[in-house]
Design a protein around this nucleic acid. Structure first.
Lengths: 153, 153
DNA sequence: ATACTTGCAAATGATTTGCCAGTGT
DNA sequence: ACACTGGCAAATCATTTGCAAGTAT
């Protein structure tokens, strides 16, 4: 999960396309690697390396290493939602940005351009080019915000 | 650093006020506890528990425990900037929110209300009550954004 | 055949917990 | 005195690394 330079996201949609990309880069499509890819395609949202290792009966180290190479290929990204392990998800369909409720744990994935107006405002005020792909926008979701007025964390 | 409910921030400015608050809550102002508080008052920005333990020659466990109680009292908060350990800082002068450059590591602390317009926009569009105190706004700072056009992470 | 990969064990880094001796109040 | 604390060792959680055996191409 080390912060190494990542490849620019290459458009892909299917497991076959992802598999092809792995081979094109001269890497091998081994059984564990295919399983990880498959599991990510089936997952609802981002999942932890440990949970993948568990459900696939693979060694965690292999899962971590695979996620790392897949991330290097631009097929996978990880996000940090609150404390707890990093969560990995496919980049099929482009980058996602996230809203994360630190009270109930709810996660909302947004389309790549949903936060553009926000990004514009941040750029204008602070000059920062903000991304909410690796760390989400964190706070209270509508429900939690309602049920707890102006409380502190 | 566990995510437990935190006390509402109580206004304080000096080490004496902080110390008084510790005692008011029936807690003890021990030597290690005072040292941690002192070090936080002297620190420029948020610092890791390990670095405090090192420079104060205290056991890391004690430092973690102290930071936890101080956080419970509303005197301290921690923030996660990128990967790496959590960083602790005083709440003297109110909550801070952060901008964090994931390329050069630059950290910009903002006054409590600097992000209100942004918060308003987020509330209007998504209903979320966003805080950038525990997780910063992450991206490329002006310098890094300039020196690296539209690259991927 | 060759280099990329795997599983397993062990190491790392961050943080927490158990325990008992020590000390503020 | 008594309960809150401190240090130290050990445990836990997430992740990484070393290494020899295995396998995709």
């Amino acid at each position: 999960m080390t912060s190494a330079p990542h490849a620019a996201p290459v458009p892909f949609r299917t497991l076959e396309q992802a598999a092809a990309l792995v081979r094109e880069r001269g890497l091998r499509l081994t059984s564990p690697r295919r399983l990880v890819l498959q599991a990510l395609f089936r997952a609802e949202g981002p999942v932890s390396a440990e949970s993948l290792a568990g459900r696939l009966t693979l060694d965690p180290a292999s899962v971590y290493r695979n996620l790392e190479v897949l991330e290097g290929l631009g097929l996978v990204r990880h996000v940090h939602l609150g404390h707890g392990p990093g969560l990995y998800g496919l980049l099929a369909g482009g980058e996602h940005e996230y809203l994360y409720c630190e009270h109930c744990g709810k996660v909302t994935a947004l389309a790549p351009d949903a936060l553009d107006p926000l990004r514009d405002q941040i750029r204008a005020r602070f000059g920062y080019e903000a991304r909410f792909t690796h760390f989400p926008i964190t706070g209270a979701c509508p429900d939690c915000a309602r049920s707890r007025g102006g409380e502190s964390v």
